[in-house]
């Protein structure tokens, strides 16, 4: 293996950038789907009617996180084959848990007396949820989203192994052809993306956090 600055610059400027958009998609799509599943699930699981299912549903989400993404792809291989879609599914399963867990924690953290007073004033169950519980738990939910985003940004590199594109393609090309600069460039970009996502969500988080919780 050898490493030259000019080859590294070339990898940074020309070889990697075409994969950025793909990789961002590989992060944002699973993150979006996971949020769309885990957040309503978390809300439902804190409603009195469904509270008793919390343990079981959370164990499913937990499993999603314990199984390595590659194993999930292997699991879905008979149905979905290789490629982009199985990669998305595996990454979605991976992103579910932090969001669901933080939704539950966030909603559980809303003080009882606040909910009690809101009910006592005559707010409907829906109004208490949308005007009290969700606004007060959103900061915690978003920090779950942040965890998921960073996790997915890194894990998404594996998608390339099953033909799922993304920055992983650059890294694995580097590994296959003993090109350190490619590995480095791909990893660097993934790191930058994870950081950007984290900063972006942190910014959003601080915007919506009520001042008393800061």
């Amino acid at each position: 293996m050898n490493f030259g600055l000019d080859r590294f610059i070339e990898a940074m400027l020309y070889r990697s950038p075409p994969y950025i958009l793909e990789h961002v998609q590989l992060v944002l799509i699973p993150l979006g789907i996971a949020a769309a599943i885990a957040f309503p699930a978390g809300v439902l699981l804190t409603r009195p009617r469904f509270r008793r299912y919390t343990g079981r549903v959370m164990s499913v989400f937990n499993a999603g996180q314990t199984i390595p993404p590659l194993a999930v792809i292997a699991l879905f291989f008979p149905f979905l084959g290789l490629g982009y879609r199985p990669a998305l599914i595996a990454l979605t399963l991976y992103a579910l848990l932090p969001i669901a867990r933080n939704t539950l924690a966030g909603l559980a953290g809303v003080p009882f007396e606040v909910k009690e007073a809101a009910r006592g004033m005559g707010m409907t169950g829906w109004q208490v949820l949308t005007q009290v519980e969700v606004p007060l738990s959103l900061p915690v939910v978003i920090s779950g989203l942040k965890t998921s985003a960073v996790l997915t940004a890194g894990t998404a590199a594996l998608a390339a192994l099953v033909g799922g594109k993304g920055m992983g393609a650059v890294i694995f090309a580097g590994i296959n052809f003993f090109r350190v600069e490619l590995i480095l460039a791909g990893t660097l970009y993934i790191g930058i993306m994870a950081l950007c996502l984290d900063r972006l969500l942190s910014f959003f988080e601080s915007r919506i956090t009520p001042s008393h919780m800061k």
């Binding site: 003080p111 007396e113 909910k115 809101a118 006592g120 005559g122 009520p210």
Partner: peptide
């Protein structure tokens, strides 16, 4: 019950003002 509660004032020990 929601309409009923809007006609009844309710004060609790922990106050329960909406913090946001």
């Amino acid at each position: 019950s929601d309409r009923l509660r809007r006609r009844i004032g309710y004060v609790i020990q922990q106050v329960g003002l909406l913090p946001h």
